[in-house]
Nucleic acid binder design. Structure first.
Lengths: 267, 267
DNA sequence: CAGTGGTCTAGACCACTGG
DNA sequence: CAGTGGTCTAGACCACTGC
């Protein structure tokens, strides 16, 4: 036995694979040590032990805490960094990723101006049209994994660039998690909405799926986006997830694509 | 000095960073060994030393060839595998990725049926409308990095699912690289077009950028996709690159989104 | 069984950051 | 200068594949 370093919890890590377990099961479900470490780090992220923007303990500290080598911790962190959950900065440390950083600002907004990159047009003007409590319809409830009829917050906003409205968004959030969110708060907050979610509601969006279609502008679209009825628009339905594949936001966006386009880079 | 193993070229690999180089330049442009190894492997892929679908030498062999440790080769291969250029298979070896495999079949086609996953609708029917030689217009030439007026191959085809036309595509290819491509060859080939490019023209598509807009169907769109004039369609302009960021294909797709949608997953 | 990639370790040294 | 992440090595052992 050894003397335990500082905090003394370390739930018996074993490279799950011995004769017994292999004999017992057809699929031994072998899990490498670094995957278990990754799970433990994920747990700490999820529980809020380390908050977005903060530094996590150094590799050496984590290696001591989990009683594995630095290389094993390193591989776990490598994967979490590749998934954009952590951010490594040489010489400084490893940090919990946040939507408040300039670099990762538009990770989920793929609409860019046709000429020039983002920012060439100045910051977006954001107008909250409404923010109200409502009952989840069947499809909204299904997407958010809540019961049909449960209370949800519904936000409608318009984003404009250079004075021209380009994006209309309807956003649905589970009311229990986002209790206290108001139009005023949304309006006064400077910075990405997902950054506000992190600081005010302890919700970090980690992953998103988008389904894109072409539709014709309805009366509502036409009025709010200042286009003719029937104008083709991009319909972008986004489902955003927090840690643990938990759906936390449904967002239906309607994009004008006369001066902007949806940019998707595939590697 | 050591005795060289088998083939005896290994162009002096050095972890570029000594006192002299640091003193000489403000940006020493330090390049880790594994990055140099990665570059050498990339060179062999590009030159065709190992072809799509083939196995590359084992990590131990490569380590001997480059006179570095297995771990260093491993890190280089890891990155190439992450970029989908190589495919690791435990117990078997490391293989050059190919568009002919089932797993990576639809890496660049993000249109999926609204309900059910891909394949639930059976294979696509592919009709080549035309395949002809033409002069590159200004925008096509710019995209493909050829001179305006250079000869390009232009292909138009329609993809149908369950008898319904869903995708209309116009494709432009530099004629010099794709000499001999005909409508007959495209029609007779079973499998992804990019797989044909690999086997017949030694061109492997590695990366692609797509710009997506919503447009109204023109006469041509309406006729070929069997929709009403003015129907909103997804316009998908794809620029596909081979190794070394060389643009090799421009593709303008027009997607019906009444039964399908463009699916984009962001991690 | 040999050969492949995958994991884990321990240690040395380098590059970068900030006090 | 100390502390962080980043690179590189050498060696041991494990899991998977196919003969």
């Amino acid at each position: 036995m050894q003397i335990l370093p500082e905090t003394s919890e370390a739930p018996e890590l074993v490279p799950v694979a011995d004769v017994a377990s292999i004999a017992a099961s057809a699929t031994p479900a072998f899990s490498p040590l670094y995957q278990q470490i990754k799970g433990l780090i994920l747990g700490s992220l999820r529980s809020g032990e380390w908050k977005p923007g903060e530094a996590i303990p150094s590799e050496i500290e984590l290696a001591a805490r989990f009683k594995v080598s630095q290389g094993t911790v390193r591989k776990a962190i490598d994967e979490l960094a590749a998934e954009n959950l952590l951010l490594r900065r040489q010489g400084k440390g490893t940090f919990v990723a946040t939507h408040a950083e300039q670099q990762v600002q538009f990770r989920f907004l793929k609409l860019v101006p046709d000429s020039g990159s983002r920012g060439s047009e100045g910051p977006a003007q954001r107008d909250i049209i409404e923010c109200r409590r409502a009952r989840a319809s069947a499809d909204v409830a299904k997407a958010l994994a809540v019961r049909s009829g449960d209370t949800v917050l519904q936000v409608r906003r318009v984003l404009s660039f250079g004075g021209t409205p380009v994006i209309l968004e309807d956003i649905w959030l589970p009311a229990t998690t986002f209790k206290g969110l108001t139009a005023e708060r949304l309006t006064s907050y400077k910075g990405p909405m997902y950054a506000l979610f992190e600081t005010e509601f302890n919700v970090r969006m980690v992953r998103a799926e988008e389904k894109i279609r072409a539709i014709a502008a309805t009366d509502t679209h036409a009025k709010l986006l200042q286009v003719a009825l029937g104008t083709p628009l991009l319909s972008v339905e986004r489902l955003a997830y927090t840690y643990q594949d938990e759906p936390m936001e449904l967002r239906r966006g309607y994009y004008r694509t006369d001066t902007h386009h949806y940019q998707n880079d595939m590697n």
